[in-house]
Design a binder for these strands. Structure first.
Length: 877
RNA sequence: GGGAGUUUAGCUCAGCUGGUUCAGAGCAUCUGCCUUACAAGCAGAGGGUCACUGGUUCGAACCCAGUAAUUCCCA
């Protein structure tokens, strides 16, 4: 079989993905094994794969594939999120392009369009995940707006309402007066806009004095209910507690003091308009101020304004300034720039507006969710996020769950003509509820709340409802078999920015509805950024297309590229060159495979070098596996990968294979060959979670395999005990070999020219370890054990081993002397510092005995080195 | 404005309980090699005021305080 020199991923990846699928190897059903469950953070149903998904899902796949190889019943549940705001906005835009406006459609008509859109674009992202190699159980694919998921949302809303945890309340929303709708924060665009800052004098009651405030929105003066100053602002302390008159309408309002006020801005006195500014609203709550709502939903002045009723707020802004000036209360006008919010959709200036919304009380729910993290039942990786989590949970605010949208689960609240409200799953239920209140209301008199719930109100149930959507109304004993088996899930992989929105709430829902945590570990990824450190986004166009990357570097290459330098919680400045490194690694393994595959095997005695290398690699492999296990247990996935990368590239390819490799056109003995294949298999097992495709491909051709012997469902290497002494000895020999190579490099000698190496610090009865490997890889013709430096050699020190290599004559003795002298000076300095330390009584009495012993060893080594260096210097003369 | 984090080689990051010759790894760079698996490669080398200032300690990249830069979350 002719194997190409370069690994070509394209055909291989599709082949293995279909094989795995056909054989149902991603499928999981409950059985007697330990479960290992991961639920995907559901991506937007109509979204396309971006680099953030790539990182996130690669990590999940690594964890899942590793668990599978550890013999666990691995179950990775995929799915998508209906993403109400994002999806609705996309549908609205698409309809707009077709000349259809949302407000010309009925709710039902609009939803029909939305479903069409969802059916057309939904699931693209899941298909893309397959290209990446994601080993999800696709038969379990869920959507947050599946019927059973909707049912769960309604049931939870009703349940929380009955428990008194859902209530209606007033909240400040971003109001678009043109579209007549509330907008989410994401839909408001802030732009620096030239504005004018008007300084207006308010008359103080029973006094000749006035107080001057500065405002960019003078029309809201009519809604003022207080003036606020900083309590330590000496200009105003005497005025605190007095009252002033609102200009033009002469309403009497108090002067209050709060540290919120910025003394530097404007005049240092702030008008407080709770109905039309978020900060003012909060001040209003704090000081129990009345709310005067002077702007109507269409942006005109309301009756409460008393003046200018029905006129647009911007006309009124001009007019009121004139009127205030006429009243002699306008102090001055400044030109400034300030940030004004505009509607993303209509470009109208956003008005903060109070409106009735649904809320979830969080305090009761947050408590257990905080406890399980504090107690370490749910672990965050990296742990630094615990601080943020705690801070948020201890200061948790009620959750506004209503959204003025149509795409999503409609709020199961029903109103009669009087505005009285009941909560029920459907109209019949609502009528029954009203009847229970003693009200006789007909179906025609009842209307359902127009709003839908926040998207997170469905996804906070995700780890429960993907298995048993009706669990939220069941006792744990009645949960279905899936939920009982798979819940709690093990690892959740997600981005830190949704730690609160999603992760915290899932923990709350899990505790509330299953009485147990939803997952044991939360792995928080970083944000994928471009080289300039900017977040990757569609609008910047700085995000590479993941599918193109996969085509260029192979899925394995891209997976490595994503993981090589992305420790948990750290941002990942993405660069294609990392995928290149990943691809190169694939190629390296491929060529190791080519080498091994090309060997002819014979029944004969192994060489001494092969025996030594085989013994060492077995022991080193064992040590590395232990190290990798430890790193995984700490979720240091990048480091685990780097450890395996070095094990494969350096230890296996550069050292082991070079040591056992037969000469040109020579055969290899069976024993070494079998050991090599075995080691190669172990490497593939270890690497499979990271590079599933190439590892499976090589696995199949490394030996004759039965049809169903696939690596994906094989097992992790059986661990043996590592021999630390052996490994340390090999490290020494590596250094000796490196020294010989460096010597050659330095002296311009060809690697083909065999050298005679002499060693002083050992004897024939105490030889260097691994001398056959040394002999082969350093290309020696002999190893002599000597008591004196042989003539015509150059001495070198490797740790405490003194070795000599022949040099016809030293080409540049001066440079040699300088080098030695430099090292001698350094070592003497080092010795001095160690001696100083050891003669310090406080060190000797305070430091741990091991540390002192270590220092003594250091001192002895240094003395020895100095002695050798001095001898070498003398020999130079 | 409130809170949390980060700052170590050109880049991305390790450095765990303060103590191994502790200042590390990968990539990049430089030098020499087309050495019969691999130039997507091999061998070797250089590269750091551990952000700054002060403190604690026998001893600080690590602990404490302050300063600066920067990122994120909430407002």
């Amino acid at each position: 079989m002719e194997i190409p020199k370069q690994y070509n991923p394209a055909s291989i990846e599709d082949k293995w993905y279909s094989t795995w699928m056909e054989k149902g190897l991603f499928r999981s059903v409950p059985d007697g094994r330990e479960s290992f469950t991961v639920v995907i953070p559901p991506p937007n149903v109509t979204g396309v794969l971006h680099m953030g998904h790539m990182l996130n899902n690669t990590i999940q796949d690594v964890l899942v594939r590793r668990a599978r190889l550890q013999g666990k019943n691995a179950c990775w549940v995929p799915g998508t999120d209906h993403a109400s705001i994002a999806t609705e906005a996309k549908v609205v835009n698409k309809l707009h392009e077709q000349g259809i406006e949302k407000n010309s459609l009925s709710r039902e008509e609009f939803l029909k369009h939305a479903w069409e859109w969802t059916d057309k674009h939904g699931g693209i992202i899941l298909e893309q995940l397959k290209k990446l190699g994601a080993s999800c159980d696709w038969e379990r694919t869920k959507f947050t707006m599946d019927d059973d998921m909707n049912r769960a949302v309604t049931n939870v809303f009703i349940d929380l309402y009955k428990k008194g945890l859902v209530y209606r309340g007033v909240r400040m929303v971003n109001w678009d007066p043109k579209a007549q709708t509330a907008l989410s924060d994401e839909e408001v665009i802030y732009r620096e806009t030239p504005s004018r800052l008007f300084h207006v004098r308010y008359q103080i009651k029973d006094s000749d004095q006035t107080i001057t405030i500065a405002t960019t929105r003078p029309e809201t003066i009519l809604g003022d209910t207080a003036i606020c100053v900083h309590p330590e602002d000496e200009r105003y302390t005497s005025l605190i507690g007095k009252t002033v008159f609102v200009p033009l309408v002469n309403r009497e309002i108090p002067i209050i003091a709060d540290e919120y006020v910025d003394r530097e801005f404007g005049t240092g006195a702030l008008k407080v308009t709770p109905a039309h500014d978020v900060n003012d609203y909060n001040l209003g709550i704090k000081y129990n101020l009345p709310v005067v709502d002077v702007i109507a939903s269409d942006g005109t002045m309301s009756a409460a304004a008393q003046l200018y009723i029905g006129r647009d707020r911007f006309d009124v802004r001009k007019q009121i300034v004139k009127d205030i000036d006429a009243a002699g209360q306008l102090d001055k006008i400044e030109d400034i720039k300030n940030n004004v919010g505009y509607s993303e959709r209509t470009d109208a200036v956003i008005e903060p507006r109070l409106s009735m919304q649904w809320f979830v009380k969080m305090e009761v729910l947050a408590k257990p969710a905080l406890d399980v993290v504090n107690e370490g039942k749910v672990k965050l990786h990296p742990a630094k996020f615990i601080n943020t989590y705690k801070y948020w949970m201890e200061n948790v605010k009620d959750w506004c769950i209503s959204r003025q949208l149509w795409w999503g689960q409609r709020i199961p609240a029903w109103y009669d003509n009087t505005g009285d409200v009941v909560v029920a799953a459907n109209l019949e239920g609502a009528m029954a509820e009203f009847a229970a209140k003693g009200k006789n209301v007909t179906a025609a008199e009842i209307r359902q709340d127009e709003d839908v719930v926040d998207t997170w109100f469905s996804s906070w149930l995700w780890p429960i409802t993907v298995f048993d959507a009706d669990a939220v109304i069941k006792n744990p004993a009645d949960f279905n078999a899936d939920l009982k088996y798979y819940y709690p899930t093990k690892d959740l992989v997600t981005a830190p920015e949704i730690l609160f929105f999603w992760v915290a709430r899932m923990i709350m829902a899990g505790m509330e509805y299953c009485g147990d945590i939803p997952f044991s570990n939360v792995y928080l990824t970083g944000i994928v950024r471009d080289k300039q450190g900017r977040k990757m986004s569609k609008s910047l166009g700085n995000s590479p297309d993941p599918i193109e990357l996969i085509e260029k570097f192979g899925a394995d290459g891209v997976r490595l590229g994503m993981l090589l330098t992305s420790p948990a919680g750290n941002d990942l400045p993405f660069d294609e060159s990392m995928c290149e490194q990943g691809r190169n690694f694939s190629n390296k393994i491929w060529n190791a495979f080519r080498l091994v595959k090309g060997w002819t095997v014979e029944d004969k005695e192994p060489t001494q070098a092969s025996r030594e290398a085989t013994a060492w690699f077995g022991s080193h492999l064992a040590a590395t596996i232990a190290e990798v296990d430890d790193l995984f247990s700490k979720y240091r996935i990048s480091e685990a990968l780097m450890t395996l990368y070095k094990l494969t590239w350096d230890d296996f390819c550069a050292w082991y294979l070079e040591a056992v490799k037969p000469g040109f056109e020579q055969s290899i003995d069976r024993e070494t060959f079998e050991a090599t294949i075995g080691y190669f298999e172990d490497l593939l097992r270890l690497l499979h979670p990271f590079i599933p495709f190439i590892s499976e491909e090589i696995w199949q051709y490394l030996r004759e395999r039965e049809d169903d012997n696939l690596l994906i469902v094989n097992h992790m290497p059986k661990t043996v005990a590592a021999d630390a002494k052996l490994n340390a000895e090999f490290d020494l020999i590596r250094e000796v070999i490196a020294a010989v190579r460096a010597f050659r490099n330095d002296k311009g000698l060809s690697p083909k020219e065999a050298l005679r190496l002499s060693c002083k610090s050992r004897s024939a009865s105490n030889q260097l370890p691994f001398d056959a490997v040394l002999f082969k890889l350093a290309n020696l013709e002999a190893i002599d054990y000597v008591s004196e430096k042989p003539e015509g050699t150059l001495a070198m020190l490797v740790r405490t081993e003194e070795i000599f290599l022949p040099v016809g004559e030293i080409s540049d003795p001066e440079a040699e002397r300088e080098k030695l002298q430099k090292e001698l000076t350094y070592t003497e300095g080092f010795l001095t510092s160690v001696e100083k330390k050891l003669s310090n009584e406080r060190f000797v009495s305070n430091a741990k005995p091991e540390v002192v012993a270590m220092e003594q060893k250091k001192m002895q080594d240094a003395v020895q080195r100095i002695k050798v260096l001095k001898e070498q210097l003398e020999a130079l003369v």
